[in-house]
């Protein structure tokens, strides 16, 4: 296994992938990772891909549409639809880097993972290692993401990583990340300002 054992929390398995993103399925009963969480997928013994949960799909169907109009719907039926019928919950994962032979890189993984590869939620140690490596270059993947809500994805990730870094003694990380975001988007006022407003909320939550 290419990753730190402390984060060995499987959250799902891979459904489909390309070089930039993948979709994993997971049981709805379990606590699947939150939007913006960092996950990793082992590609082989020495290589892992890192990605952010960029979207979570809960699909509806005719039965659910029929049920929502029914009064006094029983808890068992609600649970049936959540647990039994909504399988799997699909997580879209945006690749943001990889670890190869122990070295973290903020470039896309060398190849996408394969069907049914295990998707793991990263622990704080791994989050710190990934977000603290290099010069935050991976933020470009988030900001350039076309099919995902980039501003909120960024905010969610910076909250998770900011907490981890703060708890591991680096209280400046969040400010450095914001600085990087500003650098990347400063020529685009219309995009940058709403993103910074979202990050203002994150800062408040971090208490920094």
């Amino acid at each position: 296994m290419a990753n730190n054992p402390q984060m060995d929390v499987q959250v799902g398995r891979l459904l489909r992938a390309n070089t930039r993103a993948c979709v994993a399925g997971c049981q709805p009963a379990q606590r699947f990772p939150a939007f913006g969480a960092l996950v990793s997928i082992d590609l082989d013994e020495n290589t892992s891909a890192y990605g952010l949960v960029a979207d979570i799909h809960i699909d509806d169907d005719g039965l659910v549409r029929q049920l929502v109009t029914t009064p006094n719907i029983s808890e068992a039926v609600i649970q049936d639809n959540r647990v039994n019928r909504n399988v799997p919950v699909e997580l879209s994962i945006l690749f943001v880097g990889h670890r190869s032979a122990g070295v973290i890189s903020h470039r896309l993984p060398p190849r996408p993972p394969l069907s049914l590869d295990r998707v793991r939620a990263c622990g704080e140690g791994d989050i710190c290692a990934f977000s603290g490596a290099g010069r935050l270059g991976y933020l470009r993947f988030i900001l350039d993401a076309q099919d995902f809500p980039a501003a909120d994805l960024l905010a969610a990730h910076l909250l998770q990583a900011g907490r981890a870094q703060r708890d591991h003694g680096d209280s400046q990380w969040f400010a450095q990340a914001v600085d990087k975001v500003i650098t990347q988007l400063r020529s685009d006022y219309d995009r940058l300002m709403p993103i910074l407003e979202a990050l203002a909320d994150v800062q408040q939550e971090l208490g920094s």
Binding site: V178, D179, I182, R186, Y189, L192, L196, A200, Q203, S208
Partner: peptide, 26 residues
Amino acid sequence: IDLRYALEPSRTRLPETLANLLDCQT
């Protein structure tokens, strides 16, 4: 960098720390 950064004080929209970071670059 963009006139709008100068025309609208960032502190009206952002907390001081973020405003400082923004102002430093823009």
